[in-house]
Amino acid sequence: NDEAKKEAEKLWKNNKSEDEIKERLERAGISPDEAEQWLQELR
Rank of each mutant, 00 (worst) to 15 (best):
Glu18Thr: 06
Asp19Trp: 12
Asn15Val: 03
Glu18Pro: 08
Glu23Gln: 10
Glu41Ala: 12
Gly29Met: 00
Asp2Ile: 13
Asp33Ala: 12
Ala28Phe: 15
Asn14Val: 05
Asp19Leu: 12
Asn15Lys: 06
Asp19Ser: 13
Asn14Phe: 07
Arg27Ser: 14
Lys10Phe: 13
Gly29Lys: 00
Ile21Phe: 03
Glu3Ile: 11
Trp38Arg: 00
Glu9Ser: 09
Gly29Asp: 03
Lys16Ser: 10
Asn1Glu: 11
Glu7Asp: 08
Ile30Glu: 03
Pro32Thr: 08
Ser17Ile: 04
Ala8Tyr: 04
Ala8Cys: 14
Glu36Arg: 05
Ala8Gly: 04
Glu20Gln: 05
Leu25Phe: 02
Leu39Lys: 00
Glu9Trp: 14
Glu34Met: 14
Arg27His: 13
Leu25Trp: 03
Ala35Cys: 13
Asp33Asn: 08
Glu36Ser: 08
Trp38Val: 06
Lys5Val: 04
Trp38Thr: 02
Leu25Asn: 02
Ser31Ile: 01
Glu36Lys: 05
Lys10Arg: 13
Leu42Ala: 01
Ile30Val: 12
Ala4Gly: 05
Glu41Met: 11
Ala4Lys: 06
Glu7Val: 08
Leu39Asp: 02
Glu3Leu: 10
Lys16Tyr: 15
Glu34Phe: 04
Glu34Ile: 14
Leu25Arg: 00
Glu23Val: 04
Asn1Ala: 14
Asp2Lys: 10
Glu9Gln: 11
Pro32Cys: 05
Asp19Arg: 12
Lys5Asn: 00
Gln40Lys: 10
Lys22Ile: 09
Glu36Asn: 08
Ser17His: 05
Gly29His: 00
Ala28Arg: 06
Glu36Val: 06
Gln40Phe: 08
Leu11Ala: 06
Lys10Gly: 06
Lys10Val: 12
Asp33Phe: 09
Arg24Lys: 12
Ala8Gln: 01
Gln37Gly: 04
Ala8Phe: 07
Ala35Trp: 09
Glu26Pro: 00
Asn15Ile: 02
Lys13Phe: 12
Ser31Ala: 08
Asp19Phe: 11
Lys10Trp: 15
Pro32Ser: 10
Trp38Phe: 13
Asn15Trp: 04
Leu42Cys: 06
Ile30Phe: 11
Glu20Asp: 05
Asp33Trp: 12
Leu11Pro: 02
Glu26Lys: 11
Asp33Lys: 10
Gln37Ala: 13
Trp38Cys: 04
Lys16His: 15
Gln37Val: 08
Glu26Thr: 10
Ala4Thr: 07
Lys5Tyr: 15
Glu20Tyr: 12
Ile30Thr: 02
Glu41Thr: 10
Arg24Pro: 02
Ile21His: 01
Gln37Glu: 09
Glu18Leu: 12
Asn15Gln: 07
Leu39Trp: 02
Glu26Met: 14
Leu42Lys: 05
Leu42Asp: 01
Trp12His: 04
Glu18Asp: 10
Trp12Leu: 05
Lys10Cys: 13
Ala35Ile: 15
Ser17Tyr: 04
Gln40Met: 11
Ala8Arg: 02
Asn14Trp: 08
Asn1Lys: 15
Lys22Phe: 07
Glu18Phe: 11
Glu23Met: 07
Lys16Thr: 13
Pro32Met: 07
Lys22Glu: 03
Lys6Thr: 07
Asn14Gln: 14
Glu26His: 13
Lys22His: 02
Asn1Phe: 14
Asp2Leu: 14
Leu39Gly: 00
Glu41Pro: 01
Ala8Ser: 03
Glu26Ser: 07
Lys5Ala: 02
Arg43Val: 06
Glu20Thr: 03
Glu23Thr: 09
Glu26Arg: 12
Glu23Ser: 09
Leu25Glu: 02
Leu11Gln: 04
Lys13Asp: 05
Glu7Lys: 04
Ala8Met: 11
Leu42Asn: 02
Glu20Met: 06
Leu42Phe: 14
Lys13Gly: 06
Ser31Tyr: 03
Ala28Val: 07
Asn15Phe: 08
Glu34Gly: 02
Glu41Ser: 10
Leu25Lys: 00
Lys5Trp: 15
Ser17Trp: 04
Ser17Pro: 05
Lys22Asn: 02
Arg27Leu: 14
Ala28Cys: 11
Leu11Gly: 05
Glu7Thr: 07
Glu36Thr: 07
Glu18Ile: 13
Trp38Leu: 08
Asn15Arg: 04
Ala4Gln: 07
Asp33Met: 11
Leu25Pro: 04
Lys10Thr: 11
Glu18Tyr: 12
Glu41Asp: 09
Lys22Ser: 02
Asn15Pro: 02
Lys16Arg: 12
Gln40Val: 08
Asp2Met: 13
Glu34Cys: 14
Ala4Asn: 04
Arg43Lys: 13
Ala28Gln: 11
Trp38Asp: 00
Lys6Gln: 10
Pro32Gln: 08
Glu9Asp: 03
Trp12Gln: 01
Asn14Glu: 15
Asp33Ser: 10
Lys13Tyr: 12
Lys10Leu: 13
Arg27Thr: 10
Gly29Ser: 00
Glu36Leu: 08
Asp19His: 08
Ala28Lys: 05
Arg43Leu: 07
Gln37Asp: 06
Glu9Leu: 14
Lys10Tyr: 13
Ala35Glu: 01
Leu11Val: 03
Asn1Thr: 13
Ser31Gly: 08
Arg24Met: 15
Lys6Trp: 07
Glu18Arg: 06
Lys13Thr: 05
Lys6Ala: 11
Gln40Asn: 11
Glu9Asn: 04
Asp19Lys: 13
Lys22Arg: 14
Ala4Trp: 15
Arg43Thr: 05
Asp33His: 10
Asn14Leu: 13
Lys6Pro: 03
Arg24Asn: 10
Glu3Ala: 13
Asp2Gln: 13
Trp38Ile: 15
Asp33Ile: 11
Arg43Met: 10
Asp2Pro: 08
Pro32Arg: 10
Lys10His: 11
Glu41Gly: 07
Lys6Met: 09
Trp38Tyr: 08
Ser17Met: 04
Glu9Lys: 10
Glu23Ile: 07
Leu39Arg: 00
Ala28Leu: 15
Glu18Gln: 05
Gln37Ile: 09
Gly29Ile: 00
Arg43Trp: 06
Ile30Ala: 03
Lys13Trp: 13
Leu39Phe: 05
Glu26Ile: 14
Glu18Trp: 15
Glu26Gln: 11
Trp12Thr: 02
Leu39Thr: 01
Ala35Pro: 00
Glu23Asp: 10
Gln37Lys: 13
Asn14Pro: 01
Pro32Ala: 11
Lys6Leu: 10
Asp33Thr: 07
Arg43His: 05
Glu23Leu: 10
Glu9Tyr: 14
